[in-house]
């Protein structure tokens, strides 16, 4: 475990930010699960509640921003603490975006629920599950400073991208066979895209965790391999 600050209150403040981020992450995971449930179970009520609950995420985002600004102003963090702070400020944005993507999924779900189902959903829940696990693992990696786990998240993103491609091709065949499905297929296409974005946000977080732990910026480079970061 890392050494404590000479000024203990500083540790408490950093821990509070860490806690708020985890709370936000938990809420976001729940939102992904609920969005999928609303779609698969054709539960428009759940979808509407989910859309309404987005403001909770927004509140958490503002609370974390506020806390971060206070610590920046009062403690002038350096090195590892500084990287943690900049990371927290960015993760919070990613989490908030994930929340937005979930509400978008829910909105499309409400629209789809007004029409007959196109097909049974198999790949979309799988994709949502992957994205949700990625978000969870990215946050775990962040909390534990675990770069190995973060690297795994980055790799998983490629799999989600693959699923997205596959779903889009499938939907394209539906649309070509029967133009009356176009409107529904496009919406499903959107949802797939939203889930892919969620996985991207999780990957962002993971990349920043690697930066925090290793001090090495791997964004905008080829996907990392384990040895490179060792």
């Amino acid at each position: 475990m890392e050494r404590e600050h000479t000024f203990k209150q500083y540790d408490a403040e950093l821990n509070e930010i860490r806690g708020l981020l985890l709370e936000m992450g938990g809420k976001v995971e729940q939102m992904i699960a609920n969005a999928m449930k609303a779609l698969v179970d054709r539960d428009s009520d759940l979808a509407r509640r989910l859309i309404a609950s987005d403001h909770e995420i927004n509140h958490l985002e503002m609370a974390i921003d506020e806390k971060c600004l206070q610590v920046l102003a009062r403690r002038q963090p350096a090195a590892r603490d500084l990287r943690f702070m900049t990371l927290a400020l960015k993760i919070v944005t990613d989490l908030e975006r994930i929340g937005d993507q979930c509400t978008s999924v829910a909105k499309r779900a409400v629209e789809l629920n007004q029409e007959p189902p196109l097909k049974p959903y198999i790949d979309l829940p799988r994709m949502a599950n992957w994205a949700s696990v990625m978000v969870k693992e990215a946050l775990d990696a962040f909390v534990r400073g675990d770069s190995e786990l973060a690297i795994k998240v980055c790799r998983d993103d490629q799999f989600v991208d693959g699923l997205n491609d596959q779903i889009q091709r499938e939907l394209l065949t539906f649309m070509m066979e029967d133009p009356s499905t176009i409107s529904r297929a496009l919406k499903l296409n959107y949802i797939s895209k939203y889930l892919e974005r969620i996985a991207d946000h999780a990957t962002n977080v993971a990349e920043m965790v690697i930066f925090m732990v290793k001090g090495k910026d791997i964004r905008h480079t080829a996907p990392p391999s384990g040895d490179e970061l060792a």
Binding site: E2, R3, E4, H5, T6, F7, Y10, R75, P77, A78, A79, R80, D81, L82, R83, G215
Partner: peptide, 15 residues
């Protein structure tokens, strides 16, 4: 932002 040595890091972060 990212010192090479742990000791440096501990010192400048106030540990």
């Amino acid at each position: 932002t990212n010192p090479d040595k742990q000791q440096t890091e501990d010192y400048i972060t106030g540990r």
